[in-house]
């Protein structure tokens, strides 16, 4: 083997090692990071206008969902609070937290239905059609005219 062939061999070896490294790093790479919750929710909504963000305190006071149970949470209310439109989503810390959050959301939905049943028939109808759904560690409750489609679109990215 002359000097020229030797250099070619070294170059080919380097390329092979680099390619192998790249492939292995792709195989071990974590899944693409999820979008921030608000962005993820808004990309799934059919109408994101006229929604007002409630606070973490509201989530705790109204539903008993505690900050230590989630990494991210969002509570949006229709600016006309009588319409029934609201969106609550949370990324739980672990499966035990997810269980707590899901239970809290189901209780909240039942209580909301009791409030509106004989009072706001349109809101009540939307609430009876809404469902708390989960995927991986995410829980979501969307109340609105297109809640099923919006929930499906949101959870597809979770």
């Amino acid at each position: 083997m002359n000097k020229k062939h030797g250099l070619w061999l070294i170059a080919l070896l380097l390329i092979a090692v680099t390619l192998a490294g790249c492939q292995s790093s792709t195989e071990n790479a974590p899944e693409a990071a999820a979008l921030p919750l608000r962005e993820a929710i808004e990309s799934a909504l059919t109408d994101k206008e006229n929604l007002v963000a409630y606070t973490a305190d509201d989530l705790t006071d109204l539903m008993g969902i505690l900050p230590e149970d989630y990494t991210e949470a969002l509570f949006l209310m229709g600016s006309d609070s009588l319409s029934g439109r609201e969106i609550i989503a949370a990324r739980a810390k672990d499966s035990a937290s997810l269980k707590k959050i899901t239970e809290a959301l189901n209780n909240y939905l039942a209580q909301r239905q009791q409030e509106t049943r004989n009072y706001l028939p349109d809101a009540y109808k939307l609430q009876t059609q809404a469902k708390v759904e989960t995927k991986n560690l995410t829980a979501v409750l969307i109340v609105g005219a297109h809640s099923a489609e919006e929930t499906k679109a949101f959870l597809a990215g979770e």
Partner: peptide, 13 residues
């Protein structure tokens, strides 16, 4: 009641 709930939305807004 719902009237004060509207104030809540207004304040958060």
């Amino acid at each position: 009641d719902s009237i004060t709930a509207q104030l809540l939305v207004y304040v958060r807004e």
